[in-house]
Each structure stands twice: as structure tokens, then as C-alpha cells.
């Protein structure tokens, strides 16, 4: 149970730094600020006034990207930073197993992401209530919960990298590489495979099931699929999987399966990170 103390100390350390307040300011800016834009741009008399859904969908992309980047930034130093500073010798000189350290760090850093997210959503609620009609409490809380899940996934990936390497520079490289390949540029991977097989670019419909599956193995893709079930916001709906596929929807492309992939994105990197950290020689 000593991971509790690792997590608590980790969070106390972040509280003492300015980091938590900088992140809170960023989240307020994104949740309260960006969702206000449709209202600010609206000229009375021209078309219908923007409502709650417009504010939400405008903010959604920015908010999710901000949470994922914050997760990576907060997580990448978690363990390797202590290896470089030497404070890991306190952690491991005390009765903490290496698993306690990894688990405690993930939870501590996830809390460091969660607190600014909650603060951002609280301030955001006040602003959105003031600007828009039709505030949907359930949707709003759903989006907050979804943001916390995103934070956990990206923190896990970053802490896993942090556990795997022995210098901060390698952690930066690893996290940046994973973000570029598995997040920003992942959509090109199924496309490239398709081109290699078929010598032509895929269309937007009649896609083979493997294509959509590969697409869904990125970090963001399954989260994006799930966002549709957690929050119901106009404007962020994409073409349904059934419409994109050539045949029936196989089980691994049903929405529930996206949870399996999300959980895998937490468990597999952390498993590898723990394996490597557990074998690392602290000399």
C-alpha cells in the first residue's frame, strides 16, 4: 500500500511548484475561454443564437488536446527525473517496491492533471451558464469525466516512458515520438499500409475492417470513439463505423471494444515501463 505515500508525496511536490497553477490557468483558458468564442462572435439578428452545444463542440477539440499534452508534460519526468536528481534513492531505500513507485507515480501525476482539469471545468461552468441557454449538467459532467480519462491515459504513457529510460532527454524523445506517431500522425499508418497493398489511396467508404481496426489502435482514436458515448454534443459526430465499412461491423470495431484499446493503452505501456524499471540497475 506504500504507493499511496508515493502518490501523495508526488502530489505535494507539485502543489509546492507553480506547475499546478499554470496548468489550472491553461485549463480555465481552454474550458471557459474557448467555449465562449461562439457567443462572442455572434452578431445578434444573424441566424440563431449559439447554444450550450455550440460552446461545447467549439471547446471539445482544444480541451482534449490540451489535456493530452498536459498529461504527457506532467508525466515524462515522473521517474527519470528522480533517477537524475538522485532522490530515487530515498524512494527505493524506503520499503517501496518498484511497482509501488510506478503505480504511485501514475496516480500522483494523474491527480496533478485532474485538479487543473476540474478547476477549469468549474470556472467553465460559471462562464458557460452565463453565456448560453440550455446548460446540460449530465453532458457537462460526462465531458469532465472523459477529460479525466484522457488525462489518465496520457499520463500512463508518459510515466511508462519515464520508467523505461535513464535520462530525461531520452524521456522527452520517447514521449514526443509516441505522441507524433501514435497520435498526431497515426491516421497515415493505415493509409500507408493500404497503399502498399492496393497501390491506391483508400476512399471514405467500403473500407476493409482491418483498416478501421489499425486506425483505432492509435492513442486518440479509441478515445474519440468513446467521446460519442460519454458526451452527446452536436457537431462532433463523425460518420458511423457501419457506414465506413464494406461489410458488417465486427465485434472489435463495436464501440465497447474501444474501451479495451483504451485500457490496453494504459496497461501495455505501463507493463513495459515496469518491466524495464524493475530490471534497471540503480548504481
Amino acid at each position: 500500500m506504500s504507493w499511496v505515500h508515493v502518490a501523495r508525496k508526488d502530489f505535494a511536490d507539485a502543489l509546492r511548484s507553480k506547475l499546478l497553477w499554470v496548468l489550472s490557468a491553461l485549463m480555465i483558458l481552454v474550458v471557459a475561454g474557448i467555449s465562449a468564442i461562439p457567443q462572442l462572435l455572434y452578431i445578434p439578428g444573424q441566424g440563431p443564437a449559439p447554444g450550450f452545444d455550440d460552446g461545447m463542440s467549439f471547446m471539445f477539440t482544444w480541451m482534449t488536446m490540451m489535456v493530452s499534452i498536459i498529461g504527457l508534460v506532467v508525466g515524462y519526468r515522473a521517474i527519470v527525473g528522480e533517477r537524475e536528481s538522485g532522490s530515487i534513492r530515498f524512494l527505493l531505500g524506503l520499503p517501496n517496491s518498484r511497482r509501488d513507485v510506478v503505480v504511485g507515480k501514475v496516480l500522483g501525476r494523474a491527480t496533478v492533471v485532474a485538479v487543473p482539469t476540474v478547476i477549469g471545468f468549474l470556472v467553465g461552468a460559471v462562464v458557460i451558464l452565463a453565456l448560453y441557454d440550455g446548460f446540460a449538467v449530465t453532458d457537462y459532467i460526462g465531458l469532465l469525466v472523459f477529460a479525466l480519462v484522457i488525462g489518465l491515459v496520457y499520463v500512463s504513457v508518459a510515466v511508462a516512458v519515464s520508467a523505461s529510460v535513464n535520462t530525461r532527454a531520452k524521456a522527452v524523445g520517447g514521449v514526443l515520438g509516441i505522441y507524433l506517431i501514435f497520435d498526431l500522425l497515426w491516421w497515415t499508418v493505415p493509409m500507408a499500409i493500404y497503399w502498399l497493398l492496393e497501390r491506391e489511396l483508400p476512399g471514405s467508404t467500403d473500407l476493409p475492417a482491418w483498416y478501421v481496426l489499425v486506425e483505432r489502435l492509435g492513442i486518440w482514436e479509441p478515445l474519440g470513439i468513446l467521446s460519442g458515448t460519454l458526451v452527446d454534443i452536436a457537431g462532433v459526430e463523425t460518420v458511423s463505423t457501419a457506414d465506413r465499412l464494406a461489410g458488417d461491423v465486427p465485434f472489435f470495431l463495436e464501440t465497447w471494444f474501444a474501451w479495451v484499446i483504451v485500457i490496453a493503452w494504459v496497461a501495455i505501456p505501463l507493463g513495459i515501463g515496469y518491466y524495464r524499471f524493475n530490471r534497471a540497475v540503480m548504481s
Partner: peptide, 20 residues
């Protein structure tokens, strides 16, 4: 872990948590 539960350790080349 059982060893470290009953032993007090002053490690070499340790670093403190500067903000704590």
C-alpha cells in the same frame, strides 16, 4: 522490501526533493 522495512538507509549521491 522486507529488508528496507527494517533497515535505515543513508544512500550515496542522493538528491533531496528541493521543494519539500
Amino acid at each position: 522490501v522486507a529488508i528496507r522495512q527494517s533497515v535505515g538507509v543513508l544512500p550515496e549521491d542522493f538528491g533531496v526533493y528541493g521543494r519539500l
